[in-house]
């Protein structure tokens, strides 16, 4: 149970980072932390006490494996996270070209 709460604390750290930091790159890092907290939580859900990794090997019987489905889902979520991060880094670089700064308080051509 404690590990789940630690995951939520990690999640909140990420949210804090996104909300509070002014640097675009730090915001992207905060989003990364949020994603990883979610993924960690998802992977932990599949854990069983004393479980072993869900890999079929030649000489071992299949028993007491952890749930493999969350791991597959987390892999998908990581790929999505990769795509989002790459896109956002590219946008951040372009923003730096246009505005000459990473500070979000100075990037304010839009209003309202």
């Amino acid at each position: 149970m404690l590990t789940y709460f630690l995951c939520f604390i990690l999640f909140s750290i990420g949210v804090y980072c996104v909300l509070r930091k002014r640097n675009l790159i730090k915001i992207i890092i905060g989003l990364g932390i949020i994603e990883y907290a979610g993924n960690l939580f998802f992977a932990l859900i599949g854990y069983r006490t004393e479980g072993r990794s869900p890999i079929l090997t030649q000489d071992q019987a299949i028993k007491n494996m952890v749930d493999p489905l969350p791991q597959a889902l987390v892999l998908t979520a990581i790929v999505i996270g990769l795509a989002v991060t790459a896109l956002m880094v590219a946008i951040a670089i372009r923003i730096y070209e246009k505005y000459g700064t990473f500070d979000i308080t100075k990037i304010n051509k839009l209003k309202g």
């Binding site: 790459a86 590219a90 670089i93 372009r94």
Partner: peptide
Amino acid sequence: GLFAIFVSLVLLYKTD
């Protein structure tokens, strides 16, 4: 795809 992402980020940086 990953290689293309890396290269395009590098090229974006160089134009700067």
